[in-house]
């Protein structure tokens, strides 16, 4: 993992765009009043919703894009409950209080043959990772993005601007019909990647970790555990690891080499 990490901070951002993509996903584009710290791919923000009793705790959201020239960040959010529903209703010009940049980041691969797999809202860290690897590691990203149907596909053109994009949909409405692990890119003789990066539902990441093992590829997964604080204090977001037992997803992760996790795969 990359160790050059910026200091964590609490900051009020101004919402400059709330863009609804479809019935499940939206993007909040936020502007900082000052200069952004370095944000690494895989890092996340803890977003304050409001003071209402049912949205008391912050919500951890992965960072989708960073623009240092405009001092803006984008958060790709899925409407999952009360908190994210309220975020989806925020208006331009409003203020959003976030704690960031949190967590570790994806690591630089040993080679250049890499695959970035995102499922649903898990495509968010894949965009920022793809952009980062192209700019900083000189690696052209290859994306495999899985959705339930074509209506839920997220900003395909932004991924295509960075590299080749394969799509799978469960209903076959776009791309390959089936799950990401069934896609030919993962089932050919030349499917031996130096590393597979992934974020999405745990069941998908477990299947990918298993596949990566078969392919003799390294695999890094980004976990979406429930979190209290996001800064390593509450010890609520733990994941069981082979080397250290229970560790905080928020500070040791959210990115883990799949081999570290005690997953039954």
């Amino acid at each position: 993992m990359n160790n050059i990490k910026a200091k964590k901070r609490v900051e009020d951002f101004t919402i400059i765009e709330n863009k609804r993509l479809n019935k499940e996903f939206f993007i909040l584009k936020l502007k900082s009043a000052g200069e952004l710290p370095v944000i690494l791919p895989g890092q996340f923000a803890e977003v304050r919703i409001d003071d209402n009793p049912t949205t008391f705790l912050r919500r951890p959201i992965s960072i989708y894009n960073v623009d240092y020239s405009g001092n803006t960040i984008e958060l790709l959010i899925k409407i999952a409950g009360d908190g994210t529903k309220k975020l989806s209703e925020l208006k331009d010009g409003g203020i959003l209080n976030i704690v960031y940049p949190l967590g570790n980041s994806f690591s630089k691969p040993a080679g250049t043959k890499v695959l970035l797999i995102g499922g649903g809202t898990g495509v968010a860290p894949m965009l920022i990772l793809g952009k980062y690897m192209k700019a900083n590691w000189g690696i052209e990203p290859l994306f495999l993005l899985g959705y339930r149907s074509d209506k839920l596909i997220i900003e395909k053109e932004r991924f295509e601007a960075l590299g080749k994009v394969y799509i799978t949909t469960e209903d076959g409405s776009d791309g390959y019909k089936g799950f990401v692990t069934q896609h030919p890119i993962l089932n050919e003789p030349e499917s031996n990647f130096d590393i597979i990066y992934t974020c999405g539902p745990e069941i998908m990441m477990k299947a990918i970790a298993k596949k990566a093992k078969e392919l003799n590829s390294a695999c890094e997964v980004s976990l979406e555990n429930l979190m209290g604080c996001g800064i390593g204090a509450c010890l609520c977001c733990i994941v069981d690891t082979k080397d250290k037992g229970n560790v905080n997803t928020c500070t040791e992760g959210p990115v883990f080499n799949s081999e570290r996790l005690k997953w039954q795969i």
């Binding site: 009793p53 705790l57 429930l226 209290g228 509450c234 609520c236 977001c237 733990i238």
Partner: peptide, 12 residues
């Protein structure tokens, strides 16, 4: 074991 946390009205 996980899960160890649940948000409840005005608390956790």
């Amino acid at each position: 074991p996980y899960p160890r946390m649940a948000e409840t009205p005005s608390g956790m």
